[in-house]
Amino acid sequence: MNEVVVEARGVEKNFGDLNVLKGIDLTIRKGDVTCIIGPSGSGKSTFLRCINQLETLDGGYIIVEGQPVGVKIRKGHVEALSNAEAARSRENIGMVFQSFNLFPHMTVLENICEAPIRVKKENRAVVRERAFALLERVGLSSKADVYPAALSGGQQQRVAIARALAMEPRLMLFDEPTSALDPELVGEVLDVMRGLADAGMTMIVVTHEIGFAREVSDHLIFMDDGCVVEQGDPRTVLRSPQHERTKQFLAKVL
């Protein structure tokens, strides 16, 4: 079995009185594509954001590639990371958002090159070359110099994926990457993601695309009400769900 990339144990998160995550245990291995499905408000996006420290944990822990998330252990105590340390630990984790979040004041090329140049202090020419290669990979070579506003949703999301890949991450998080897209644009984004999975990228994908989950993922997780209800091989889970809640959900979406 491949090495463990993400180890989550007893992860809890509250928004005020609302318990969004009620103890999530999860293991994700290198090269695996893990899809998380579940109804809205089940906490799947929140869990994904916890992995990247966009949310702080209220209980439990997550270890990504041997590094505890958001904290460090010093002299027998657990300490919160400083802002700079938190930023550094995010460098190796790429994230793609439902609403793309491209930087509207920068061209496509600038969007992709910004972080490698500013954060990793890489050479401009090297980064530019890599950016063009990535644009080719997502099928947008001709769009390097346009602003995001001139792109369709599907194109914006492919740029967002290229932007995340430019940092050469070892783990990619996708937060409902196709939910904001017109139906006919979903396919082009899923194709890019499929290519990424084939290339061996470790991916965690929160999605409503059951078909994608069935065909591409190695591991399927069904979450409901802040808990992991069921998980396992996607074909098995989708064909013969064990829990009543999973059956109800799948009956509605399939």
Binding site: F97, N101, R118
Partner: peptide, 20 residues
């Protein structure tokens, strides 16, 4: 979302403020 995207790319607070 702009700040979150920049954070996710590993940018420091000052870079996020100044560039994004």
């Amino acid at each position: 979302g702009q700040t979150e995207a920049a954070k996710a790319l590993g940018m420091r607070r000052f870079t996020i403020l100044w560039r994004i």
